[in-house]
Write a protein that binds this DNA or RNA. Structure first.
Lengths: 341, 341
DNA sequence: CTTCTGAATGATAACGTTATCAATTTATGC
DNA sequence: GCATAAATTGATAACGTTATCATTCAGAAG
């Protein structure tokens, strides 16, 4: 098997020292070489088919120009757009991106942290699999967290203001005349359920109304979107078969919202005439559903971009860094699933 | 800044040579060390917080245990599951995965090929952005293509039998009594449109029927799923406003199928009573639509797994390799959008 | 024609592993 | 006990870059 060409081969080919060759091939713009030599090197490199070995360079420079993203599950519709934004932004700044899925498994997540250290990534963007994720193993690797929770007060975070987003939806439903709003939450969202309930009750209190009782639908939420959807359907079916019906449903994510839509359609409940539905996240499926799903949109592209920019800043200025916490606003996208009560 | 601990530091700490330390820390199972020394090394490593530098190891071993995936766009709902399967399989065999998006841009794609060479990946799985993608720059890197087209006859490929899949759908629609089937294709799918038309006509011929005229709906297909959806809606709206209506629509992908569903719902055309719709791909949105979309499913997890396994084989046996072409069958998933004519 | 300056080039030591071979220790058989 | 073999361990040269320092060379000034 033919050995890979190195800088030394180029040097031999053009009769210059490897130092000079290196300067031409990888030096910054402000290097000093005679125009003549530059061409000699370049054509020699071209001729023998030289390609820089990034491993060697990274080892020597103690810098890989690579960052890692750690998320739970790429098949979760929430993530791809986020990842794309990170990749795009990083690319512009000369960084490559390694993306790792932990399947919500803390052990795999920890393995990935080890991997990051071993491969010497320059930084990391992490969506913690659990509120208890131990980030200490990352050591001195600069990182930014993708989370809006207060579970990680000491770290840099970029996330959405979900509470405010939820209020946006409730306020709009109120404006449309809805008073009997059901709250549909996925159970296993760790800390998720409780604050949602809180926001819900605060909202009614603010309006001087009694929060409706028996309007709280809870379903198991799995690590698999499809299974979650199935469970959500079942819960919603049971709920809508009951006696006290809401005029609107606020679902704490789009999967739950879509399940609500499907059940309503099946039961012949017209959306939005008889029932309004609002989801949360803004995933693609919500745009192609029937009717298209009104949702509290999280701007994933923006989150990704901001996380990337923050990380780059942090990489460049590792000392004297003060913790940054970015909370981006959600926005309500009104589509066909909401209307007057 | 505290320097990272190396194998030499461990050696100092435990009073053994770095060679021995290396043997314990990274040697295969069949190494020879006294049980005693092993423990000395391990506890010393533990104590000073040693972590292997993968860059140095890769450089020395000329092997990175990393492979790259090159695809067009991670936000395309077709890809995440495929990538996940590749990652899972590769993980089992000790490989890490770098995933690169080229946005359908051949220049970025070529840049990515360069990147693969520079970072010395052990192999690559590539979904070519175009039928004309130049793969020569990959040089000696072993790779497998994700494609079912005959555009790359000389390379290893893993893909679906889309023609057979399309026939599956048409046959089933025929069985359900449909004779007036519309073919809905996205225009810019390079080689896609033509063979679909061919399969369509062959099908009618086989049945001894005249292929219906004016039953061919064409729409621009963009690199962005959302824009495509919008254009698909417009095309389908125009078509369904016409005089000769089909009893069924075969859409060449799920996005087009979902657009058809939405237009039909809007027009008060009952699916499946008045119109049956079949899509292709089996993306998530098709499961949560109303009604759930019948589709020709491509088993992306299986494609990913087979591509990964094929690549691993090829990496292990670089010489004497003979081109492998895997064509996996599609399967029809019947959901609510199809019924008797 | 020197001397001096700055620009251009060259030699070489890292970076942290792994793999090879040599050196040492331990076990075995007579 | 001693020779021999086997099991451990140690020294060291790669891997292909980059960065530092030393050297050479061309040009300017005296």
């Amino acid at each position: 098997m033919r050995r890979r060409k190195t800088i030394v081969d180029v040097a031999k080919e053009c009769g210059l020292s490897q130092a000079t060759v290196a300067r031409v091939l990888n030096g910054q713009k402000n290097i000093q070489v005679k125009g003549n030599t530059r061409e000699r090197v370049l054509s020699a490199a071209q001729k023998i088919g030289y390609s820089r070995n990034a491993l060697a360079a990274s080892l020597r420079r103690q810098k890989t120009n690579t960052i890692a993203i750690s998320i739970a599950d790429i098949t979760n519709p929430f993530f791809p757009e986020l990842i794309k934004a990170i990749q795009d932004t990083m690319r512009q700044y000369g960084y490559s991106v390694i993306q790792l899925n932990n399947e919500w498994n803390p052990d795999i997540e920890q393995e990935h942290f080890q991997y990051m250290i071993q491969t010497c990534v320059d930084g990391a963007i992490i969506s913690p699999s659990h509120p208890t994720t131990n980030l200490d193993p990352l050591g001195i690797i600069p990182f930014v967290l993708l989370t809006n929770s207060e579970d990680f007060p000491a770290y840099d975070t970029v996330g959405n203001d979900s509470k405010e987003g939820m209020n946006l939806a409730l306020e709009r439903l109120y404006e449309l005349g809805h008073r009997e709003i059901a709250l549909f939450v996925g159970g296993s969202m760790s800390s998720g359920s409780s604050w949602r309930l809180e926001v819900f009750h605060n909202f009614y209190e603010r309006k001087g109304l009694e929060a409706p009782t028996n309007m709280h639908v809870d379903c198991e939420f799995s690590i698999n979107s499809l299974i979650s959807f199935e469970k959500a359907r079942n819960s919603m079916e049971k709920f809508l078969a009951g006696s006290n019906l809401p005029t609107a449903v606020f679902a704490s994510n789009d999967i739950l919202g879509l399940a609500t839509l499907q059940v309503a359609n099946d039961k012949g409940i017209n959306v939005p005439d008889q029932l309004s539905v609002v989801g949360m996240d803004g995933i693609f499926s919500g745009e192609v559903s029937y009717p298209p799903l009104t949702t509290v949109n999280k701007n994933r592209a923006e989150i990704g971009r901001m996380a990337a920019l923050t990380l780059i800043e942090k990489i460049k200025q590792p000392i004297g860094w003060e913790t940054k916490k970015l909370t981006l606003p959600c926005n309500l996208i009104e589509r066909g699933s909401t209307g007057r009560a």
